Simulated assay, not measured.
Amino acid sequence: MSGGTVASLPEGLLDGGVWFRVEAAGTASAVRRAAERLATELAMPEKRINDLSIVAAEAAGNLVKHAEQGTILVRVVRTVEQAGVELIAVDSGPGMADVERALGDGHSTAGTLGIGLGAILRQASRWDLYSMPGKGTVLAMQVWPSGAPERSWASGLTRPLTGETVSGDAYAVREIEGRRQVLVCDGLGHGGLAAAASHEAVRAFHKASAVPPAMLVEVLHRALGHTRGAALAVAELDLAAGLVRYAGLGNIAGTVFGPDGGRRGMVSMPGIAGHQRRQIREYDYPLAPGAVVLMHTDGVVDRWNAAEYPGLFARSPEVIAATVLRDAGTRRDDAGVLVARS
């Protein structure tokens, strides 16, 4: 998740986390150790590290026993006051027809005791889940050192191109002087230089003053002049006015999904931030109560159909983003998704 309080990752912590492909018990152990190491680095209390260890072991174990193409993202989540660890488990099947029954201790589809999900729910500070038969399950879990903070109104995920260790895609979230603003960027190409461009965009985004999206994109364009450049877009959710204000350069897709099922695409201008642009323009779009703003890089295909996912937009931003990334993300490019709720 990255005057006024900035509800996002502090400058310098730009790592989008580490993805693990979970197919064997050995990988499940690696997930647990990675989560414990993060928590130790964050100086979390020993009891919460132990709780996190249980959550990580059960989540990874469930993927080994039950899932197809299971992966887990392990990353830090922060507020101004504290830092915790988040795990997002994603699989492509079989999915659950009766989520409520599956959440109860004693239910199992693999002849085991069926206590895994129950243990996760008891030890995690917060969790959210979306599952559909035939498509799979996304389970997001957070463990905080003390009480869980208020749910974030926006979150996202990035995943590197297959074979790369870093992603050239990035996102950021901030609240500054009453403005709720989000950034999605895609560094030109892939690998370390693409990641450096996106990280510079995130750094400049957090440092910039409270200005409208078009002015903010101009600031980012100037900041990226010494990098290879990036496609990027900024959206501002003005809840009082019922509007999304949007400005972008390059191939970042933005869509407003209304509570009635309608969708409205948002317009970015041609160009590469840091290198070439014609004119930066800002557009306003209606934002009804309950609407969702979804932005993604070109590593995610636009053919994703929200109508095939009943109830998804009632879930948390991280679960929505992970579901879209799973089903619409390509492995041939870096991929990034951000979701913001009204």
Results as ranks from 00 to 15, higher is better:
residue 5 T to E: 13
residue 13 L to P: 01
residue 17 G to A: 11
residue 19 W to L: 11
residue 26 G to R: 11
residue 38 L to C: 04
residue 39 A to F: 08
residue 43 A to H: 13
residue 47 K to G: 15
residue 49 I to H: 00
residue 51 D to G: 09
residue 63 L to M: 06
residue 64 V to T: 11
residue 81 E to R: 11
residue 88 I to P: 01
residue 100 E to R: 15
residue 100 E to M: 10
residue 100 E to G: 08
residue 113 L to K: 10
residue 115 I to N: 14
residue 124 A to H: 04
residue 142 Q to P: 02
residue 142 Q to A: 06
residue 146 S to V: 11
residue 152 S to T: 09
residue 158 T to V: 15
residue 159 R to Y: 05
residue 161 L to E: 04
residue 162 T to D: 13
residue 163 G to L: 09
residue 170 A to M: 07
residue 173 V to T: 14
residue 180 R to Y: 11
residue 184 V to T: 09
residue 192 G to C: 02
residue 200 E to H: 07
residue 201 A to E: 03
residue 203 R to K: 10
residue 214 A to M: 07
residue 239 L to N: 00
residue 242 G to D: 14
residue 246 Y to L: 04
residue 247 A to V: 07
residue 254 G to N: 08
residue 257 F to Q: 02
residue 259 P to E: 10
residue 263 R to M: 08
residue 264 R to D: 08
residue 267 V to C: 05
residue 273 A to H: 01
residue 276 Q to W: 13
residue 277 R to M: 13
residue 277 R to P: 06
residue 282 E to D: 06
residue 285 Y to A: 12
residue 301 V to G: 09
residue 309 Y to P: 03
residue 311 G to F: 10
residue 312 L to M: 02
residue 318 E to G: 00
residue 322 A to S: 12
residue 325 L to F: 07
residue 328 A to K: 11
residue 335 A to I: 00
residue 337 V to M: 08
residue 342 S to P: 09
